[in-house]
């Protein structure tokens, strides 16, 4: 998540849908989302304001799945979670917004993250203090 820290990234996202190709947009289908921390851990959050990451309670992965016959089945999902690196030197709050309903094999995702690279769980953002990766 920080430029140059890991070549292959810190978080891995896998999305599976069955069938991969649908006839119409109206179809229901099975789908499964897996978010994994390559190193460190992640923790799903329902906090109103995610400005302070917890010290513990992190897991290696989050899994979300829906079967097409489920009563509460839905097409899209927004996932909020905290990330903590394995050494505790980096915290982040992340929002992933998935859209799984495109009839074709491609779909969209929005990834939003606020990362504190200085080892503090404080995630209070100030646009005037933002670190520019470029």
């Amino acid at each position: 998540m920080k430029k140059g820290r890991r070549k292959e990234g810190e978080i891995k996202v896998t999305l599976e849908r069955n069938p991969k190709k649908m006839v119409t947009y109206q179809d229901k289908y099975d789908w499964e989302l897996k978010i994994e921390a390559i190193e460190g851990g992640i923790q799903r959050s329902n906090d109103v304001f995610m400005y302070l990451a917890p010290d513990d309670g992190y897991y290696k992965q989050i899994e979300i799945s829906y079967k097409k016959d489920e009563k509460n089945w839905k097409r899209d999902e927004i996932v909020h979670f905290y990330y903590k690196s394995d050494k505790g030197d980096m915290y982040a709050r992340v929002t992933l917004n998935f859209r799984t309903g495109n009839p074709g094999p491609k779909t969209g995702m929005t990834f939003t993250a606020y990362v504190n690279p200085n080892g503090s769980p404080n995630l209070e953002y100030d646009v005037f203090k933002a670190i520019n990766l470029n």
């Binding site: 998540m1 920080k2 999305l15 599976e16 849908r17 991969k20 799984t100 094999p105 491609k106 779909t107 969209g108 995702m109 929005t110 990834f111 939003t112 993250a113 606020y114 990362v115 504190n116 690279p117 200085n118 503090s120 404080n122 995630l123 209070e124 953002y125 100030d126 646009v127 203090k129 933002a130 670190i131 990766l133």
Partner: peptide, 16 residues
């Protein structure tokens, strides 16, 4: 408030 890295990415990728 802290010095944070803010990232937002919109992407499309292949299912499965």
């Amino acid at each position: 408030s802290q010095a944070l890295i803010f990232m937002i990415t919109i992407m499309a990728y292949l299912m499965m």
